[in-house]
Design a protein around this nucleic acid. Structure first.
Lengths: 140, 140
DNA sequence: TTCTTGACTTAGACAATGTCCAATGTAGGA
DNA sequence: TCCTACATTGGACATTGTCTAAGTCAAGAA
């Protein structure tokens, strides 16, 4: 994903300091941050960046297919930079962290034709929920 | 689900007019309402019911396992009264409506042991997304 | 290099959804 | 019927996200 900025410029993106910083934050650790977390990390590098710009930039990256938007609970959406590899998610019900996982087979094939009700299906997401080893090691 | 109120009373629920109305709204149509929609429908039958009570009651029904909480997008959560039959969801990306669907096989078996990272997995949700026949019939 | 311009950013108001609390009301047992 | 622990209420507050008007700047043109 290191050539992300090049790809974006090729698509007519105007390259600003703000966009570069947001892209770098996502490109760094391979974690699933919320918009607010991205904003906090971006602020460390570019103190005057605004919330609105972070939201705008994340939205653009999602539209361009460079980043996935994940909403596992009813809380803040998280942004997944691993958009170019097909994968699903494993979520800890206690601490909320997310891991990418890879399933066998195509989940779409598990839905029989009569169960599709005439929908034109374009996407399937599978989310596994449980307690992560770190949380289960703790009491309470 | 008509004996829902009986089951709840058996579990020590104090039966109030407000709780009865919320349960009846969910019990009626087999749709997936948001909390606000439940509140609107409950208000038709019991005008003085408050938002807080609707939220409380929905939360209790979820804790008791009588209703499922579904958050497909980053918007309002929806409440699914069909908690006693295993099923998955088919969501229209345009209008947001949800249909219950039944898949073949157990989605959990598609996740190999090494991909579980020591999690104690308790739940799998599969969500199919696409355009429903009604929306695809419309322009724009 | 400098100029120009339309795209980008900003701050803050606003919107949608959900949570919390102190005061008041009431279901159900004694 | 009376008590009281539990439930409800209204409204303040919190979180997350969206919108807009005004100012700023990247990148191509000259």
């Amino acid at each position: 994903m290191s050539d992300l900025l090049e790809r974006l410029r090729g698509r007519g993106w105007r390259l600003t300091a703000q966009r570069r910083v947001v892209a770098e934050v996502l490109d760094g650790d391979h974690v699933h941050y919320t918009a607010d977390e991205v904003h906090a990390l971006a602020t460390e590098r570019l103190p005057e960046i605004s919330r609105a710009t972070v939201y705008n930039t994340l939205g653009e990256l999602v539209s361009l297919g460079e980043v996935l938007e994940v909403s596992t609970d009813g809380r803040a959406k998280r942004y997944d930079p691993n958009a170019h590899h097909d994968h699903q998610h494993l979520v800890c019900s206690r601490c909320g962290t997310i891991r990418d996982v890879h399933v066998q087979g195509d989940p779409l094939s598990a839905l029989p034709e009569p169960e599709r009700y005439g929908f034109d299906i374009s996407e399937v997401t599978v989310t596994y929920r449980g307690i992560c080893p770190h949380c289960s090691g703790h009491h309470s």
